[in-house]
Amino acid sequence: MFTRTAFFEGHILEGMEEAFFVAVESHLLPIWRRLPHAQKVRLFWPVTCDEDTPAVFLIQQIDYPSLAAIEEAMASPVREEARLAHQSIMSMYEGRHYHLVCRRQEADC
């Protein structure tokens, strides 16, 4: 399994927090769930962090069965729809977002 993780680094503009959360959960999340081969979508809203770490205000993860599945999802019309929907939230935050793709391995405690 592979997980594509998006990090939103920076900060949500003051007074836009609620509108940002609503837009992500009601507009973007349904699109992300429709990406081809997406198996699970997770959102994380950080509440604390170590000193000297980048200010990350949202982490989004999508699980896929293979790297080929990710490539297909990224080339799909749904991905373009997600990009357009993302433009609607960009005015609500300052910063950047970037992605990492990781091979996922469960480690039981």
Results as ranks from 00 to 15, higher is better:
Thr3Asn: 13
Thr3Gln: 13
Arg4Gly: 02
Ala6Gln: 12
Phe7Asp: 02
Phe8Ile: 13
Glu9Tyr: 02
His11Thr: 03
His11Arg: 11
Leu13Met: 11
Met16Arg: 14
Glu17Lys: 06
Glu18Phe: 02
Glu18Tyr: 01
Phe21Asp: 04
Val22Trp: 01
Glu25Lys: 14
Leu28Ile: 13
Leu29Gln: 03
Pro30Asp: 01
Trp32Met: 08
Trp32Ala: 10
Pro36Tyr: 01
Pro36Asp: 00
Ala38Ile: 06
Ala38Pro: 09
Gln39Phe: 06
Gln39Cys: 12
Val47Trp: 06
Cys49His: 11
Asp50Met: 07
Asp50Ser: 09
Asp50Leu: 09
Glu51Phe: 08
Asp52Phe: 11
Pro54Asn: 06
Ala55His: 11
Phe57Asp: 06
Leu58His: 03
Ile59Met: 15
Ile59Cys: 09
Gln60Cys: 14
Gln61Asn: 10
Ile62Gly: 06
Tyr64Lys: 10
Ser66Leu: 05
Ser66Val: 07
Ala68Trp: 00
Ala68Gln: 12
Ala69Leu: 06
Ala69Gly: 04
Met74Ser: 09
Ala75Ile: 01
Ser76Arg: 05
Ser76Phe: 05
Pro77Phe: 00
Pro77Ala: 06
Val78Ala: 08
Ala82His: 05
Arg83Tyr: 05
Arg83Gln: 11
Leu84Phe: 01
Leu84Gly: 00
Leu84Thr: 02
Leu84Glu: 04
His86Met: 14
Ser88Phe: 03
Ser88Arg: 08
Ile89Arg: 06
Ile89Ser: 07
Met90Val: 09
Met90Lys: 14
Ser91Lys: 13
Met92Glu: 02
Tyr93Cys: 11
Gly95Pro: 10
Arg96Phe: 05
His97Trp: 10
His97Arg: 10
His97Asn: 15
Tyr98Ile: 09
Leu100Tyr: 10
Cys102Val: 15
Arg104Tyr: 04
Arg104Leu: 05
Glu106Leu: 12
Cys109Arg: 05
